[in-house]
Design a protein around this nucleic acid. Structure first.
Length: 897
RNA sequence: GCGGGUGUGGCGGAAUGGUAGACGCGACAGACUCAAAAUCUGUUUCCGCAAGGAGUGUCGGUUCGAGUCCGACCACCCGUACCA
């Protein structure tokens, strides 16, 4: 071999690793284990740069730990249920199952050439009946433990397609296909009792020392523990059965500033009024328009309706407040009813101003307090304020003190009681869709809702379904739906809801420890392999997936499927940034159409402007003198700089095929829907896997987003070729000068230390930078061939986690024994890291003016003498003596004049 | 709206409160070449001929010293419970 040729060697090394079984995880009690896991992918059919980055990071960790003597488990699987498979079936025909499995085969074929150190013998997909059958078994166990129940909850309802929509399918309040306004509708659904664990899930965050602080903070805020007062207003003029209105407040200290009570549109009182009062019915119906997402509800204009009902203030029976129905009150939180204190809540203030309600200050700033005008006064709860309406605490007190006093007072007077509430809601897992894990439950006319018998598991999805009609095919599949009751044997019906795909991904990490076990987990394998030592995935999963997994591990422990040590399944978490790319878009207008199934009188809807997105390779650019198919941000910026007056879109912006103008939107997370994706396969086929791997590990810190650009891929390839040549030339460049050996070896040990620290600290970009610098040092060194061989063997080892194939090439070229993939990680010799001289910068008033070089252990007085003798310092001092002289040993000297 | 994060040259980024710009990309110059590619050597924060000055999103503060700590703001990104 005479040149770096990844196309030939990469496949050979992959075959060699396979033959040696290097990546098979061995349950070896004699060795410490290390379980590294990356969040498994959804099988869209194509891998993208985000996958390459994610799996390369895990691979670097896995290979490094293996070299350090650990028995490593590094598995891979597929998060294979979900909506895209059904959408594909609707759009192109075919079956979600064939679409999914064929995508899995495609993606596996694209991933294998990356040379990841994955134990493929443990691979599974969540849509395998062997997997979801075990999930059904656990669901039944959880039912028996009381962790599962049914209740009514709202969904997005598309009145034209007569189907439930996901939040992402609701675009500006309208169905994505029908374009009809979406309504909120209640359905009976299945729930996991995650809120029973709210306190534990919150407290245990403190123990997750190796999780990012931001993730723990986000989860804590999501769980949202609050202490407040719950009490009941006596109502005046309310329908029978509503003599009292329970409210919850976290600000009982502001009770004397209350100006109205407000209830959610779904509150029982609102429903009672709706039945008899057409105006209420109309208002509530208006509130139910739009999607169910918190974002949609919170950003909608705040509107209210005065019910005419009044409530008596608990502190003063002669003081009555109006009861409003308000669209921003959530039925899911607290009691679905509040009292509004406009002076100290901006939302309440806006509402009060809009409808002319009273605004009463209960406290003002301790100094120079002014009454509230347009802005509510909401200081930190720990800040001392001056009270105008205090009823159980001193005039000057913090809100924290006042809240505690108000609760104690209310309890003493029998007005209400202190309550701890959580924002966290129970986990609704029902999905009215086909392509998910069937909920293993049977509805029997005489026995009610009963679990399927375990011996009948898995409840398999039927294959003979079609997607030509919107809605859930399971609902209209009589032979699947009709069954016999496992208790009484009578004719019964299957549950047709399937599970949220977050359930599938909440325990796959445990299944990997024994992927073929006849039970969900295997106790011995769990005992050895759990927990995941390092979990790696996108920060977008910081809350839902990770919180659900933490809950599910607890539920699995409660049902005997995980040991107690695994209730926090992920010891360490790393959240990588996303791979982003510019977005190319154009838009077109669809004329308004009547909603066909709403009846003949339906008015045409308004015209719809739809965004269309274009793949990077479909867009061509106008960049004089440049390859039109490279969309380098650098070039655009340069172009804009060189051509004042031109706009960003002028730089490059039309479709290659039609010449239609497209617009360039700022980089965002690569996503299929925005089509701003880049295909790593072409990089791998052009340059080899190592180039792709090296490229995604360099430059950007792994926790930060990285904007993909074509630049650098080629540069990475060039660098790997250079490293290959450096190894090739070790013996071809003559004997060299042994006097230079020490300097090279010192650099080598420095590099070992830097690369090791970089990998262990998840600073792969810094490890890469150290390796670049080391290559420069080897190239410029005149050291002996022996020293260079040692240096390049170490180079091979240090690069092997990132560029494993090239590392094997070099290792073999230089006569290394066995595979570098099985060699022990090199250790830096501390003696070689010591420098005998240090350079001390000299500052004057914090500005650097000069520097001196002194032996490392020079004492401060000696340094001071040298500094004062320095020419530049003398010039600045001009005979005066410095006000102060700060010597930070080994660091810096600051002369204050 | 709410919660979390990010912001440093032409670009990606580096920097235990201690020399801002490591390392790489790009650009420029030179060597090699008939020529080009590849490779190698060097220069490259900005303004300025220079001396010198300015500079880490904006404004303010703490400190001998701030990219780093504190406060206010701006912009963008992620999440917001049925996208995965």
């Amino acid at each position: 071999m005479s040149r770096y040729d990844p196309a030939v060697t990469e496949a050979n090394w992959q075959a060699a690793w396979d033959a040696a079984g290097v990546f098979r995880a061995h349950h070896d009690p004699a060795r410490p284990k290390y379980y590294v896991l990356e969040m498994f992918p959804y099988p869209s059919g194509r891998i993208h740069m985000g996958h390459v980055r994610n799996y390369t990071m895990g691979d670097v960790v896995a290979r490094h730990k293996a070299a350090c003597g650990f028995s490593v488990l590094h598995p891979m699987g597929w998060d294979a249920f979900g909506m895209p498979a059904e959408n594909a079936a609707m759009e192109r025909g075919g079956h979600p199952k064939t679409w999914t499995y064929s995508n899995i085969a495609d993606m596996r074929a694209q991933m294998k050439p990356l040379g990841l150190s994955i134990d493929w013998s443990r691979e599974f997909a969540t849509c395998d009946p062997e997997y979801y059958g075990q999930q059904q078994a656990m669901f039944i166990d959880m039912m028996e433990k009381g962790l599962v129940y049914r209740k009514a909850a709202v969904v997005n309802w598309d009145p034209v397609d007569m189907t439930v929509l996901a939040n992402e399918q609701v675009i500006e309040g309208k169905g994505w296909r029908s374009n009809a306004p979406v309504e909120r509708r209640e359905l009976t659904q299945w729930f996991f009792r995650i809120s029973d664990y709210a306190e534990d899930l919150l407290d245990a965050l403190d123990g997750l020392k190796d999780w990012p602080e931001k993730v723990r903070l986000m989860q804590a805020n999501w769980i949202g523990k609050s202490r407040g007062l719950q009490f009941a207003f006596d109502t005046v003029g309310a329908p029978a059965g509503n003599e009292r209105l329970e409210v919850y407040t976290t600000r009982p200290d502001t009770l004397m500033g209350a100006s109205f009570a407000a209830i959610a549109p779904d509150h029982p009182l609102a429903k009672a009024l709706e039945a008899t009062n057409p105006a209420v019915a109309a208002f509530v119906a208006e509130c139910r328009r739009g999607g169910t997402s918190e974002e949609a509800i919170e950003t909608a204009e705040k509107v209210g309706f005065d019910t005419g009902i009044r409530v008596k203030h608990p502190m003063d029976p002669n003081w009555e407040l109006p009861v409003w129905i308000a669209n921003f009150i959530l039925m899911d939180y607290g009691t679905g009813a509040i009292f509004g204190c406009p002076a100290h809540d901006q939302r309440d203030l806006d509402f009060a101003r809009k409808y002319g309600l009273d605004v009463t200050d209960t406290f003002v700033a301790a100094e120079a307090g002014e009454p509230v005008g347009k802005t509510a006064f909401v200081p930190m709860k720990s800040e001392k304020v001056r009270w105008l309406k205090n009823f159980a605490w001193p005039e000057v007190a913090t809100a924290e003190e006042a809240i505690a006093a108000a609760i104690a007072y209310a309890e003493e007077k029998g007005i209400g009681h202190g309550v701890t509430n959580f924002r966290l809601r129970d986990w609704g897992i029902s999905r009215q869709r086909y392509w998910g894990c069937p909920i293993p439950v049977i509805h029997c006319p005489s026995c009610g809702v009963v679990p399927e018998a375990k011996e009948n598991l898995p409840v398999r999805l039927p294959d003979d379904v079609s997607f030509d009609v919107p809605g859930n095919p399971l609902d209209r599949h009589p032979t699947w739906r009709d069954c016999t009751c496992p208790h009484c044997g009578a004719a019964a019906r299957r549950e047709t809801d399937t599970m949220d795909t977050f359930v599938d991904s909440s325990w796959y990490y445990a299944r990997f420890t024994a992927p073929h076990a006849a039970t969900p987990t295997d106790a011995e394998e769990c005992a050895y392999w759990m927990n995941v030592d390092q979990y790696i995935g996108g920060v977008e999963h910081a809350i839902l997936h990770l919180l659900y997994s933490r809950f599910f591990a607890r539920a699995m422990h409660a049902t005997g499927h995980l040991p107690a040590k695994a209730i926090e399944p992920f010891n360490a978490l790393f959240t990588q940034g996303m791979v982003t790319h510019e977005i190319y878009t154009s838009s077109f207008t669809i004329p308004g159409e009547p909603y066909p199934r709403l009846g003949v009188d339906a008015e045409p809807g308004p015209p719809v402007v739809r965004q269309v997105y274009h793949l990077p390779e479909e867009v061509e650019g106008f960049l004089p003198g440049k390859n039109p198919r490279t969309f380098l941000k650098i070039e655009v910026e340069q172009y804009l700089q060189d051509n004042p007056g031109k706009e960003r879109a002028d730089a490059y912006a039309f479709l290659a095929e039609s010449g239609e103008r497209v617009y360039v939107l700022p980089s965002a997370k690569m996503s299929k829907s925005k089509k701003n994706v880049v295909d790593p396969v072409s990089i791998v086929t052009t340059f080899g896997a190592d180039t792709a791997r090296w490229f995604v590990m360099s430059d950007s810190p792994p926790e930060r987003d990285v904007e993909w650009t074509a630049s650098g891929a080629e540069a990475a390839f060039k660098h790997l070729g250079r490293v290959w040549r450096l190894a090739d030339e070790v013996d071809k460049r003559g004997a060299g000068d042994p006097a230079q050996d020490m300097a090279l070896l010192k650099t080598m040990h420095r590099t070992i230390a830097d690369v090791t620290a970089g990998i262990e600290g998840f600073a792969f970009n810094k490890a890469v930078a150290a390796l670049y610098a080391f290559a420069n040092a080897v190239q410029r060194s005149d050291a002996s061939a022996n020293a260079k061989r040692t240096a390049m063997q170490t180079m091979a080892q240090l690069m092997s986690p990132m560029t494993p194939h090239l590392a094997e090439d070099i290792w073999a070229m230089l006569g290394g024994t066995g595979l570098v993939a099985q060699a022990l990680w090199p250790k830096a010799d501390p003696a070689m890291l010591v420098e005998d001289h240090v350079t001390l910068p000299i500052q004057v008033n914090g500005k650097r003016v000069a520097e001196i070089s002194v032996p490392k252990e020079t004492a401060a007085p000696e340094v001071e003498k040298r500094v004062l003798a320095d020419e530049t310092v003398q010039k600045v001092l001009a005979g005066r003596s410095p006000k102060k002289l700060i010597v930070v040993p080994g660091r810096i000297v600051n002369v204050v004049v």
